[in-house]
Design a protein around this nucleic acid. Structure first.
Lengths: 238, 238
DNA sequence: TTGCTCCTCACGTCACGTGAGGTGGC
DNA sequence: TTGCTCCTCACGTCACGTGAGGTGGC
């Protein structure tokens, strides 16, 4: 007169399938069968299942529980390790929540790293400038990026830059040259260029190869800005 | 001249397989191919991958991210839900840590529910009594159980009970009757029996049927104690 | 005879990791 | 010719959930 599998599950506050899974992985010995093939569980099985349940509820994996054996030795070491992991997990989740709070408060976009995103929160960059910043963020150290972002924030609305942002792809010769000439000497533009990470910073701060970084920046510009804009950049620097 | 899959992965700080997985689930459109069949990614892909990465790092599932679409609308609602889940998770983990602290501090066993385990921490019950308590814990409300455990703790070392615990299975007639007689009138034994949850408490506090609870208790006793001990219990109550 | 419980396969979940086997570019 | 990268299947992971198909007890 033992318990059936579902009775055992009910008593232990778990499910039929969980009991069978413990059999499958060898955590719980199979009990005697009745004449009809039904399993018949005893108190030792219940106690075993409850112990497994306690430990999984605490967060141990079935493999770890198996490693503990069914012995009575106190699993102090395993539990201390678990505790350290839990502490780390909690910290991580709290950092995530802090980040979420920033994002939610300022309706910040979700594609930039948190610190930069916070800084550029109420600056509305053009999609191109935003994408370029996202790419740049992958190439350069957080420090270098944020000093760039700071200038970007300060001067995003300078008329000559707005003009550049809105330059149509089919702008004529004269318009391009004129804009390039004005940009080349404009103090704010000069300041922005100065804030842009220089070669050395770019290459040292990046985990990628020099060639790759340089190519990536060129590629990003080529893809994000239109023909006229790129032409202006060339004239300005050339 | 686009990026290869592994270049994209490297730039995004993720893995080759992750990029391919995003293709598989439709989160990331496949790029153009070169003549040799190699994929060739652009800046839009990188930006997309980085957005997905940001959101998975925050804890969104790929399904949730897919539901957000690639639009620019701010995913405020989803993030608020996520934040609530995170808060709940953190609380749960903190409760687990508190439990772990109790277990670690007192070297408490890991098979009893936390409160009862704490109470019985430095009482060393016999394996039988411990198992019986574990089973009882599944049948009765925490309150009823802890008042029982309290008495158990107070009187576990009473000589007549120690004698009962150590009674060999082949104890003779006279020994059994004598022990039963003494237990029947012993004040501490009486107190323990009074503290044992009565029928009404047992049945009302349990999520199981009356019959099942009664049978379970009988079965536990029958399995845990030896023939002579059970005989003594019968004589004592009969 | 009809529900209800029990049994044993065996596939599905989630976000990828990890080879297996084959081809293109230097 | 030899490494290196790229490609596409396709199975494995973890702790079970969820049928699929069949049998025993009232």
């Amino acid at each position: 007169v033992g318990w059936s599998t579902s009775q055992l599950a009910e008593l232990a506050g778990t499910t039929l399938r969980t009991i069978r899974h413990y059999h499958d992985v060898g955590l719980l010995p199979e009990p005697e069968r009745r004449a009809n093939g039904y399993k018949s569980y005893g108190v030792t099985h219940l106690v075993r299942v409850l112990r497994i349940k306690r430990l999984t509820d605490l967060g141990l994996s079935l493999t770890q529980i198996a490693a503990l054996g069914d012995g009575d030795e106190h699993p102090g070491e395993a539990l201390r390790e678990l505790d350290a992991e839990l502490a780390a997990t909690i910290e991580r989740l709290q950092r995530v929540r802090a980040e979420l709070a920033v994002i939610l408060r300022q309706e910040a976009p979700t594609d930039l790293p948190p610190d930069v995103a916070a800084m550029l929160a109420n600056v509305d960059l053009t999609p191109q400038d935003r994408s370029f910043t996202v790419v740049l963020a992958q190439l350069v150290s957080p420090d270098a990026l944020s000093s760039y972002a700071e200038v970007l924030k300060a001067y995003a609305k300078v008329p000559v830059l707005v003009e550049f942002d809105e330059l149509p792809a089919d702008a004529d010769e004269e318009t391009r040259q004129d804009l390039a000439d004005r940009m080349r000497v404009h103090p704010h533009v000069l300041e922005m260029r100065a804030a842009f990470p220089d070669q050395a910073t770019l290459y040292s701060a990046s985990p990628h190869s020099e060639k790759f970084v340089a190519q990536t920046i060129v590629k990003a510009i080529a893809e994000l800005y239109n023909e006229a804009q790129i032409d202006v950049l060339v004239r300005m620097n050339g």
